[in-house]
Amino acid sequence: MHVDPFVLFLAAIFTSNILLTNFLGMCSYLSVSNQISSAFGLGMSVIFVTTITAVICWLAYYQILVPFHLEYLQLIVFIIIIAAFVQLTEIMLERFAPVLYYTLGIFLPLITVNCAIFGVVLFMLIRKYSLVQSFAFGLGGGIGWALAILLLAGLRSRLKEKMIPVGLRGAGISLIMTGIMALAFMGFSGIVNVQ
C-alpha cells in the first residue's frame, strides 16, 4: 500500500497505540501492571511475540492459505501459530531467564489470548499491509503495548491507595488512569502523517 513502514512503526506506538486507541490487550495489562519489574518482563515478551508472529502469520496467510483458498481458516491458523510461538517463548524463558519465568507465572501462557497480538495480525490483514509493513506494524504494536503497561505500572507504583475511594481501588482507578493516558496520546495524532 502507500504507507512508509517507518511511519507505520511510529504510528503504531503513538498515534494508534494498540492499547490506548484500539483497546486491545487490556486483561493482562490491568493485572500485571501492579509491579514495574513484571510489567517490563511481560512487555518485552509481548514485543517479541507480536513482531515474529506478525511476520509468520503474514507468510502463512499469503503463501499458504490464499493459494489454496483456505482463507476461512485464517483465525484458527493464526491462533495456533501464536499459541505455538508463546509455548516456544515460555521454554526459552525457563531456560535463559528463570526468575522472569517464575514472576510472570500464569501470564506467560496468557499472552496467547492477548487480544493485542491477535488484533495486530487481524488489522494488518484488513489493511492489506506488505511483509515489511507488517513487520514494522508488529514491532510498533508490541512496543506501544509495552509502553502503555510500563506507564501504568509506573503510575500505580506511585499511587497512595488510601486516598482512593474503596470501590475504585484496583481496576477502577487503573481504568481512569488509562483513560487519561488515552486522552494524552491523542495529542500525538497529526505528528505522523499516515498518508
Binding site: 490506548l20 486507541t21 483497546f23 475511594p165 474503596v166 470501590g167 475504585l168 481496576a171 477502577g172 482507578i173 481504568l175 481512569i176 488509562t178 483513560g179 487519561i180 488515552a182 486522552l183 491523542m186
Partner: peptide, 24 residues
C-alpha cells in the same frame, strides 16, 4: 472516542462495588 469508555466503565465498577458488593 476511546477514553470515555474507560471512565464510564470505571464509574460502573465503582457503583457496583459500593452498592452491590458493599465493599467498605
Amino acid at each position: 472516542m476511546a477514553p470515555s469508555a474507560f471512565f464510564i466503565l470505571a464509574c460502573l465498577i465503582w457503583l457496583v462495588n459500593t452498592k452491590y458488593y458493599k465493599i467498605k
